[in-house]
Nucleic acid binder design. Structure first.
Lengths: 182, 182
DNA sequence: CAGACCGTTCAGAAAGTTCTGAAAGTTCGG
DNA sequence: CCGAACTTTCAGAACTTTCTGAACGGTCTG
């Protein structure tokens, strides 16, 4: 009877965390599963988790593998037990630095690659449009470089300073303004 | 003839930025439209943008309104012109602080509200499961409070320090360990 | 004040994502 | 090596998000 009460509360909390996690670009269930594990304070089996969150065995398997990949959940072997058990990681820094190091770095990198290809194409053009755009795409490139630097610093020191982005994107005064001054 | 060349490059760059922006939880088109505006360096009309990115007039309208909401694009009125024109915001800080202040704060807030309701429910339970879970959900609450503080500091100073999260979630030694010690 | 022009809205279409359930795969004890 | 216990994989279903295109409403011009 007491159990019904906290099961409801557990789902409420799990869903709240699920939303935050979804907002960070992951699936909601990832947050829900982690939360149920965290609140339980002990290890749980995949089937137990599937049952508590009414999800299929398949989904539980996929979700737990993914959580493990992000180092947010640990697989625990128990001697004598056929099933595998899982426990929540509680070191937030471990979790977030893995995500930032892997995922954010990847995004920044792939954006930079593509911007570089675009820059090359602009550089080939002889017309005014290409020349102007080349200059601006180079600003975007400087921006990705700065972003990569912030990511590295963050992973190393747990701090991020966005001051450097200040006016990286600002465009030089327009031709009209320049002429007026001269 | 020169134009064909840079139009392709422009789409490449726009799509690269689109991916980054999507990764941040917005629609890809938002990034694409901003990029075309940024690279062009001048104001463009909604129809011009729709044409360059092969999107419908409806989509262009919705997208531009949303970009404006995030203060990432400005609407510019030109005397004598029937259409409205748009230009890209280039002050990165303006853009990101608006997003963080509005969106991240909202997420943190709503997660906290729901965790508080869950805590109340756990507090009502008299059994051991509820008591243990109450303690842990309180750690999650402390976490959201810390997160809200980081957000405020970030908006005010352009810097974020995640050090405080360190061991906020860590659980006390388990019963077994405690007994072994005593 | 009729018609062209422009921006917005919204129902339904299209595209994209996530989940289920069943089948195949793996491991282990007997 | 058989069968039970458990996990993984994946095709298709269910759901969610995003886009299109047509209709509407406002505004300017001749």
């Amino acid at each position: 009877m007491g159990v019904e009460l906290w099961r409801e509360a557990e789902l409420l909390a799990a869903d709240a965390v699920g939303d935050v996690i979804e907002h960070w670009g992951f699936r909601k269930v990832l947050g829900r599963v982690w939360t149920v594990l965290y609140l339980s304070g002990e290890t749980l089996s995949a089937s137990e988790l599937a049952e508590r969150l009414s999800m299929s065995a398949g989904s539980a398997s996929t979700t737990l593998t993914e959580l493990q990949h992000w180092a947010v959940v640990r697989r625990v072997w128990k001697p004598g037990e056929r099933k595998e058990f899982f426990e929540a990681e509680t070191d937030f820094w471990k979790m977030i630095s893995k995500v930032v190091a892997e995922r954010e770095r990847f995004v920044a990198r792939s954006a930079r690659d593509r911007l570089e290809r675009a820059a090359e194409l602009f550089a080939r053009g002889r017309d005014a449009g290409s020349r102007e755009r080349l200059e601006r795409v180079q600003r975007l490139l400087a921006f990705t470089t700065a972003a990569e630097k912030v990511i590295d610093t963050f992973v190393a020191s747990r701090r991020a300073d966005f001051g450097a982005f200040g006016d990286l994107l600002a465009l030089p005064r327009s031709l009209g303004t320049r002429l007026r001054r001269a």
